[in-house]
Each structure stands twice: as C-alpha cells, then as structure tokens.
Design a protein around this nucleic acid. Structure first.
Ligand SMILES: [Mn+2]
Ligand SMILES: [Mn+2]
Ligand SMILES: [Zn+2]
Ligand SMILES: [Zn+2]
Lengths: 140, 140
DNA sequence: CAAGCAGTTTAGAATCGCTCTAATTTTATT
DNA sequence: AATAAAATTAGAGCGATTCTAAACTGCTTG
C-alpha cells in the first residue's frame, strides 16, 4: 500500500487519534476522516467498508471492524444494538436517544433534552448503570 | 414422534394458540407450555431449545425458531434486540422496559409506571411509533 | 372415517455478520 | 538503520439464524 503525505486537513483527525492513544495509521486516518469529517453519523461496518471503497481507500474489512472497535473502546464512537442482525456505530458519543426507521434501517438522533426520563429505578443489587438506551421504532 | 393426549392443564395454552390463529401442534403446545406456564420470561432460541430437551420435548431447532417467530407475529411474544449476537423473546407483551445485566446476559422487567417518559418527540415525517424500547444496561 | 390439502415439522445445507489466525507490513523508538 | 511492538490483511472459522425440500399432521369435507 502506498503511503500518502499527511495533508493539513487531516491534522485534526490525526490529533484526535493520537489523543485517544491510537496510532494514526493510514487506514485509521482515512476511516476517521470518513467518520468524523462531517456531522454525526450512524454507520454499519459494511456501510463504512463500502464507503471506503467508493473513496478509493484501500482497507480490508477486518481493519474496518478493528478500527470501529478500537474507536469505540476509546470513546470516539459508541456501538448501538438495534437489530439483532448487525451493529451500528454512532459518532455522537454524547447523551442522546434514537429514532429507528424499521423500513430503511436508518437511525436519527434525539437530543437528551427532548425526552424526560424521570424516576429511573435504581440498578438492582448494587449494580452500576452503564448506559440507558432509548429507541423509538417507527414505521411509515 | 408419539402423540400424547391433551391434558386439562394444557387447555388454557391450547386455547391461547387457537385464539391466536395458530394450529395447536404437539410442538407448539409443548413450547407454549414451557413459555407461558410460569410467570413472565425472557428466553433465547437456544435456551428454549435446551429447556425443551431437558423436558424430553422432542422438537427441532428450526421449529423452535419457527414457533418463536409465529408467536411473536401473533403478539404472544415480543422480540427484543439487546445484543447484536442474539435475540431475546419476552413473554411479557405489555408496556414495560428492561434492565440488562451485561455480565450474565439476563433481562429484568421494569414496569412502565416506574419510568416517566415525558415529552416523547413526534415521529418525524408522518411516521408511526411502533414501539419505544428502554434498556438500562447495568454492570456489577 | 377416508381422502385431500394446507399448514407444520425437520435435518441438514446455506447464509451472513463478525472474529480469529498467522504471516506480513508499518510505526515508533533507539 | 536496527529493533520491538502494534497494526493490517486474506482467508479460514464461527455461531446464530434462515432456507430448502421432503415427510408428516391437523383439519375440513364427503
Ligand atoms: Mn462489537
Ligand atoms: Mn426474528
Ligand atoms: Zn446517535
Ligand atoms: Zn420483559
């Protein structure tokens, strides 16, 4: 694989990886750019893999999975289980919820302030709440 | 496979199937009995399949999947996606939410009244809300 | 109750998202 | 440049689920 000079536009993404403690390899940089260059996104591994291909980013499927998981581990992404058949990865790691369009498989953010989640019960038996997921499944 | 007389205890389950418009076959009756005889349950296909084996219910894995899906279609069960690696089926089809214990993979019901879900945003673009899932993921 | 048919079950193959393996390549450090 | 650690990769492997197509069963009808 040909290495390519780092352009100024990559700098922010590069720093983001370094800050997270991830080596800024060509593959991670390219994927991070696809993921983070625009606004928040919800991607599947396959979707990102195809997008990489479309953008002539030469990267293996295994690396896409590795990167998605590495990014998730470092809180650059968050993984969402909506449909038991595939995982989604969300570039919005802040507190928020989702609409899920069953026909298209698309996700749409709902800001945390838009839902009042009151009286959340205590986690039983001294357990710790890791996350609260709210998914509003919609159909046309 | 030997057929077995329908016992009085099966009657309620039998009616339940008939009412749902499902033929009360030996396999469906046996599985429905496992599912609905006790209180509410959260099962996986594999779990139910093993439970059937333990109870000397001779049924194939494909039939377990068929029954779970048929029951879900008729609203005798509801399917829950928690973990992208497997589906759970819930005998509680009423409005309620869940604790999910990440270590053990167990689910625990949270009655709808225990969570105040206010200000639910409208479904965008004239879509209809099919369901609202709330999953509180907990760790010890 | 026999026949007939739609609905159901089944074993095993197939599928599919994802993970693993082990060899190669790259990165970061000296 | 040499080295060690980390990352990438092709392809095999895995596990949950679905599919196929043949055998069986429940229900209706005569
Ligand atoms: Mn994962
Ligand atoms: Mn399903
Ligand atoms: Zn999101
Ligand atoms: Zn439940």
């Amino acid at each position: 694989m040909r290495a390519k000079k780092t352009s100024p536009a990559d700098l922010t993404v590069l720093e983001r990886l370094r800050t997270a403690g991830l080596r800024p390899t060509r593959q991670r940089l390219a994927l991070a750019k696809l993921l983070f260059a625009q606004g928040h996104r919800h991607v599947t591994a396959e979707g990102l893999f195809n997008e990489a291909k479309d953008n002539r980013v030469d990267v293996s499927l295994a690396t896409v999975y590795n990167a998605l998981h590495d990014f998730t581990e470092k809180s650059l992404l968050r993984e969402i289980s909506i449909d038991s058949s595939r995982s989604y990865f969300d570039t919005n790691v802040g507190d928020h919820y989702h609409f899920y369009f069953e026909q298209t498989g698309k996700l749409q953010d709902i800001p945390a302030e838009r839902i009042a989640l009151a009286n959340l019960p205590e986690a039983p038996g001294g357990a710790t709440v890791a996350r609260v997921d709210v998914i509003i499944r919609v159909r046309d």
